[in-house]
Design a protein around this nucleic acid. Structure first.
Lengths: 201, 201
DNA sequence: GTCTATACTAGGATAGAC
DNA sequence: GTCTATCCTAGTATAGAC
């Protein structure tokens, strides 16, 4: 009897179309704002009628979810590529710079991943698992640097998201807060060194 | 001839109804998310049909705008009420605590005032003037404390909005980041003292 | 499997009767 | 000032053509 083909060309085509729709969704979200994303715009961009999109994604939120997962994967990937040296302050700065740049370079993605502004959207369990994985990878890197105290980690996330947030909200396209990342890490590093040496408060 | 009445009862009633609609809008925004605000929900809450709301606000964005202005006025007011002592670190902490608490106590308001997530919404010139006024009042207080350097102010806004943002996004209703405000201000204060004494970088 | 036509509902907005 | 009726856009479901 005939063997089944190794490659499923139909499935491959389906995946390619899904990817095409996702790319279009990112374009629309960047242009119109994340909440301004409409299936009609996406459909038009890929040359379909709106209902056809449902062959690939069950609902608009499923598109958001796929975008969310994609963002997580990209973030994980960049974490892997970080060129770390073993010098704590240097590596801390490298990591924070990567994070802030990641946020700033795509505000729509930042809004999707780190803010909760789409009514009713919550990442699926699978997508959220990716986010947890990314967070854990970051935690592991920080532990290597010597930052394991939860309070210190919370302070650091506040500092880096604050820099990203202000850059996006108040100086889009500029570098007014981006260029403060190095100084912020010096400040933070001096602070935690101070804390571990003696005074607890 | 008859003098015109001093009070315009009709206008007063109109203003009262406007205020009622605004209150309802805040309730809906808090319950459904800022972007989940619908005129229908607001109308139902005040006992009107949706089109009747247009007698009071030209458009949905006009409601957002009035909410924005209201938020600015409340923030200005709290700035006025701050009990400052003349001690720089103490006053800095008091002000930052006020800011973070203001943000955290109403995430919908925070989103409206400090994030730009409603597609197409921009505050009117009048409302934005209030925001500028609030910012300037804050700048004046910081100058009194001895923080006039723009870079230092940017660092401070990043730190405080970051604390607020993380608290709202990752621990709503809790105090995981709220309780870091004092420590953050110590860190920041030590840093700028360090900067002004000698090394520029 | 893929796409379209069609229709339904929610929501913002306008026109006109009362 | 408030209502009813209406229109447009958008998300979504279904049926059916190919």
């Amino acid at each position: 009897m005939l063997g089944e083909p190794i490659r499923d060309r139909r499935a491959e085509r389906h995946e390619r179309t899904k990817a095409e729709i996702l790319d279009a969704a990112w374009e629309v979200a960047r242009a119109e704002g994340l909440a301004g994303l409409t299936l009609r715009d996406v459909a038009r961009k890929v040359g379909m009628r709106p209902p056809s999109v449902y062959s690939y994604f069950d609902a608009k939120h499923a598109i958001y979810d796929a975008m969310y997962a994609q963002g997580c994967r990209e973030f994980l990937d960049r974490g892997t590529r970080l060129a770390l040296t073993g010098d704590p302050l240097r590596d801390l700065t490298t990591g924070s710079r990567m994070f802030v740049e990641f946020c700033v370079e795509d505000p729509a993605r930042y809004q999707l991943m780190f803010q909760r502004t789409i009514p009713g959207f919550e990442p699926s369990a699978e997508s959220y698992a990716l986010a947890v994985q990314a967070l854990e990878a970051m935690g592991a890197r920080l532990a290597q640097i010597g930052i394991a105290d939860p309070g210190a980690m919370d302070m650091l996330t506040a500092l880096t998201t604050g820099l990203a947030d202000q850059q996006i909200s108040n100086d889009p396209g500029g570098d007014r807060w981006l260029k403060l990342v190095d100084e912020a890490m010096e400040m933070f590093f001096a602070h935690i060194k101070n804390r571990t040496h003696g005074r607890t408060h």
